[in-house]
Design a protein around this nucleic acid. Sequence first.
DNA 1: AAACTAATTATAACAATTATAAACTAATAA
DNA 2: TTATTAGTTTATAATTGTTATAATTAGTTT
Lengths: 146, 146
Amino acid sequence: MSEMQLKSALDTLKTTGVRITPQRHAILEYLIESMSHPTADEIYKALEGKFPNMSVATVYNNLRVFRESELVKELTYGDSASRFDFVTNKHYHIICEGCGKIVDFHYPGLDEVEHFAAHVTGFKINSHRMEIYGTCPTCSEQATKS
Amino acid sequence: MSEMQLKSALDTLKTTGVRITPQRHAILEYLIESMSHPTADEIYKALEGKFPNMSVATVYNNLRVFRESELVKELTYGDSASRFDFVTNKHYHIICEGCGKIVDFHYPGLDEVEHFAAHVTGFKINSHRMEIYGTCPTCSEQATKS
DNA sequence: AAACTAATTATAACAATTATAAACTAATAA
DNA sequence: TTATTAGTTTATAATTGTTATAATTAGTTT
């Protein structure tokens, strides 16, 4: 099924006239198959076996391309590096403050909050962002041990 | 009333054994009275009249101190600089993608989302963050004109 | 193949933030 | 009072994530 996701992502690129290079293919593949929310640097390191002289700029460039094609979302998490999330279906993130792990969870969109905000502020709404912070089971356990 | 906020903030610092320096006083005062969500640099520039040789590091240091005392919240907004929000009562932010303006709006806390997330992920919840992105009335107007 | 466009690379630049070390301040103790 | 100590500020250097630039390479179109 992840192959389907990759295929459909490549289709999206093709139809919008974006050239599919080996690097782009590999970055997309990694984003989908790793099932994680890697930073640009993690992607770079993960692929340096396959592409020994790929530049970091290539990773950043292509993540921007993917973001503009709405294939990935950029998550700015605190003061550290951005993380990139392959867009599948709508979901939110819960982030462990102990180890930084990000876990997806599904929840019906917060449309009523958007409407409320539009009403009281007069803004035209584009999107929203919501994240929950806490401690994952593993880190909770370690805390009780010590 | 903003004086009360300042007084209570200074009390919080005093009771936790944090020394109240003129710089800290001024930064807090600015955060409260400006009613905005300034970046570290904006604070720095706003106070360079009063403290001609204050260092940027001082601003950052003290914002960290305040954050650790839970007097301010750090808002990481996209790829640009962090903004700092004096914590009063619970509110959310709506951010204009045109001009970067941040407007507060009040909405009952999203407790049910937190509970749901805790249930499906097994995390212990600490907090959440929610922001809405859109276009403010001023920027909307300009867009229709052009 | 020639010409053109897009992508990659290597590297430099940049901006936000943090770390370091020296100088200074303020509170407390002798 | 002076000495001591810990905390703070300053100035500056270093770091980190990211973007810009220019040259090279690859791919596409005619």
